[in-house]
Simulated scan of single mutants.
Amino acid sequence: MTSTPSDPNEPFGAGQPAYPGPQQPAAPYGSYPTGPGGQPPQRPAAPPQPSSIALAVKLMLVGAALSLLSLVVGFIGLGSLKDDIARQMRESDPSVTQSTIDAAYAVGIASSIVGGSITVLLWLWMAWKNGQGRSWARVVATVLGVLNVVFTLFGLAIGGTQTVSVVLSIVNLVLGVFILVLLWKKQSSAFYDATAASRQLY
């Protein structure tokens, strides 16, 4: 049996099955799901702040301003602070030197500046993070609020502070308690939960 010779005028490879071209690789096992059009799914939008959180953030900014005002008032009363330190140190040790009193006074000033600055920054930080709906920020704000109540009541019990400082401490105390009430309201809790869900990847 003989094969029929191909037509010399026919192009090479005519009538033969086409050579398979490159194939698209199969999607790897466990690949990420995609949304419409092959795009990755979008995370839900962050929920808007409820009125309780918006008010709490504003009051935290007020707390930062009050803390800054307390720091300024403390600087105004530095003269009486030095006298108080000198009197207390001489009562405990009559032979104390002036250089020791000056050193204690310098430490007192530095402590007031550092402590006051940290307090202002904490107010601003808590306003920022709670405004974003961070659940851990509400826990931190609660701990700081409780410590603020304890230290304020302790300072008022000791006494010996200026009237303006006492008034500012009381206002700050009431402000902190009211902020905590706002942060733990039902609508605030729903906001923290919804914000946490919006940050999850699907």
Rank of each mutant, 00 (worst) to 15 (best):
I53E: 02
I53D: 02
A54W: 01
L55R: 10
L55D: 02
L55I: 06
V57G: 03
K58C: 00
K58E: 04
K58S: 12
M60E: 11
M60Q: 14
L61E: 08
L61D: 08
G63D: 08
G63I: 02
G63R: 01
A64T: 06
A64W: 00
A65I: 11
A65Y: 01
A65F: 08
L66H: 04
L66F: 12
S70M: 13
S70V: 00
L71A: 15
L71W: 01
V72D: 04
V72P: 10
V72C: 11
V72G: 14
V72L: 15
V72N: 04
V73G: 01
V73I: 12
G74A: 11
G74H: 03
G74C: 04
F75G: 14
I76V: 15
I76M: 13
I76F: 08
G77R: 04
G79V: 06
G79P: 09
S80N: 13
S80A: 13
L81C: 02
K82W: 01
K82Q: 13
D83G: 13
D84H: 07
A86R: 09
Q88F: 05
Q88K: 12
Q88W: 00
M89A: 14
M89G: 14
E91C: 04
E91I: 06
E91V: 09
E91R: 11
E91S: 15
E91F: 14
S92P: 01
S92N: 13
D93G: 03
D93A: 08
D93Y: 05
Q98M: 12
Q98L: 10
S99W: 00
S99R: 07
T100Y: 11
A104P: 00
A104E: 14
A106E: 07
V107D: 13
G108R: 04
G108T: 10
I109A: 11
I109Y: 05
A110S: 13
S111M: 09
S112K: 06
I113W: 05
V114T: 09
V114A: 15
G116Q: 09
S117V: 15
I118C: 08
T119Q: 12
V120K: 06
V120C: 09
L121Y: 10
L122C: 09
L122H: 00
L122N: 07
L122E: 10
L122Q: 11
W123C: 13
W123G: 07
L124W: 03
M126W: 00
K129S: 12
K129Y: 10
N130H: 00
G133F: 08
G133K: 11
G133R: 10
S135V: 07
W136T: 07
W136H: 00
W136D: 06
A137F: 04
R138H: 01
A141Q: 03
T142M: 07
T142W: 05
V143M: 04
L144N: 06
V146E: 01
V146G: 08
L147A: 15
L147F: 08
V149C: 07
V150R: 02
F151V: 12
F151Q: 09
T152M: 02
L153D: 04
